[in-house]
Amino acid sequence: MTLQLVLVVAAALFCVGLYGALSQQVVVMVMMGLELMLNGVILAVAAFWWFLAPNPDGMLLLLVVIAAMTVEMAMGFAIATLLHRSKETDMTDMAADLSG
């Protein structure tokens, strides 16, 4: 197991998530894409921590990424609820305008 191998796996996860975040129309599916991207980031940070500098700072960065994931999830669900209530939709294309 090498740093390069782990980083390639992390890049694959990140890019699969990027594809989903760009291509999906349903808000929850877009959130899944973002989650997958953050999954790749978590793996990459863990690899950097383990293979380069195994001190507590790297673990704190991991906790910050996990916190960012939590924030993304909570706000995504709240926006999905708001969209469904105000426009009866769950698709990003139907929420492209700013008018109330």
Partner: peptide, 25 residues
């Protein structure tokens, strides 16, 4: 299957993967 801009999303994601993998290696 509810997607938009599927082809360009796949191309962009593949390009970024190649870039990141090249950097990692």
């Amino acid at each position: 299957s509810m997607v938009h801009n599927n082809r360009w999303s796949a191309i962009l994601a593949t390009g970024i993967f190649l870039l990141l993998a090249a950097g990692a290696l």
